[in-house]
Design a binder for these strands. Structure first.
Length: 285
DNA sequence: CACTTGACCTGTCCGC
DNA sequence: TGCGGACAGGTCAAGT
């Protein structure tokens, strides 16, 4: 589920409620989701203050006063839902994927502060929490490609990173987090549509003008999705339990058989790089 | 070696 | 309505 726009939406919301708060307790119901021993979490997470909340690619990064960073990956179905102690908490719209209240049967980790609780739900249990010493964080993150919403992101960054993947299809290359950080299946398909590039095109075949178009398309799609607070078609909710509404504006993802918004021909779906891939055969060449 | 596939885990949806 | 199989947004180890 969560790609860059969803993770960034959660980051912004959590930063405003968690910054400066001290973690008073940790409840773990599924210790396999912790990538370090529980004792390490007890020692460096409980009692620590949250200094900042950042994001790199699809990772959420919580800076702790203990000298560690808490790294959280939501993978496919992870949710981080904040519930303040005071004030009523409610789900916006209708319940999604049976997840309508917290805690629930998929709540595997709970982090408590004097002001409320942060619930980590994950139906498929692919997500994880990991503690990284401050001094190791940059090493841990160094392999990731450029952040597409950074002002420093230019088409030449993309072109440079694509050099070592010339024989891949552009779809497969964009899913690779070392090429560009934060794209997943949805926004890769969306970006390729906006750039009018067929997902099957080999990286080596792309001309500079097409790479420029692709770069602009990625930024445009991600910004649009971020202002829509992400895409919810299944389990995604933000930290307030609310859905994102990019789904209503999407161009191709999940629209097989529906009409292309540009040429009115039906959207097609194929398997590429092992993933469902949606495109318009007429507009994307 | 570069690239593709399967595994992780659970739920949902579709066709018979 | 029940049941089996395909499929689901991410990532990486194992296999070709």
């Amino acid at each position: 589920m969560p790609e860059l726009p969803e993770v960034e939406t959660i980051r912004r919301d959590l930063a405003s409620v968690l910054k400066g708060q001290r973690i008073s307790d940790l409840i773990v119901k599924q210790s396999t989701l912790l990538h370090n021993p529980l004792a390490l979490f007890r020692r460096y997470l409980v009692g620590a203050k949250i200094l900042s909340v950042k994001r790199r690619a699809k990772l959420l990064l919580f800076e702790l006063s203990s000298g560690y960073w808490l790294v959280v990956h939501l993978k496919m179905t992870g949710q981080l839902v904040w519930r303040p102690k005071r004030g009523r908490w409610r789900v916006g719209g209708h319940p999604i994927g049976g997840v309508s209240e917290v805690p629930n049967k998929y709540t595997y980790i709970t982090l408590k502060t004097p002001h409320g609780s942060l619930y980590f739900n994950d139906v498929r249990k692919f997500g994880y929490w990991q503690l990284i010493p401050k001094s190791n964080l940059s090493h841990y993150l160094q392999a990731y490609g450029p952040e597409p919403l950074s002002v420093k992101f230019k088409w030449r960054n993309l072109a440079e990173r694509l050099l070592s993947h010339k024989r891949l299809t552009i779809k497969a290359a964009l899913l690779n987090q070392t090429v560009v950080a934060g794209l997943g299946n949805i926004y890769t398909d969306e970006s390729l549509f906006v750039a009018r590039l067929n997902p099957k095109r080999l990286v080596a075949s792309l001309k500079p003008v097409e790479l420029k178009r692709l770069c602009r398309a990625i930024v445009m799609v991600l910004k649009k999705a971020l202002s829509a607070r992400g895409t919810s078609f299944n389990t995604y909710v933000d930290s307030l339990g609310q859905r994102g509404h990019y789904w209503q504006q999407r161009f191709v993802y999940g629209r097989r058989g529906e009409l292309c918004r540009r040429c009115q021909r039906p959207i097609k779906k194929m398997i590429l790089a092992g993933r469902g891939t949606h495109y318009c055969a007429f507009c994307q060449s």
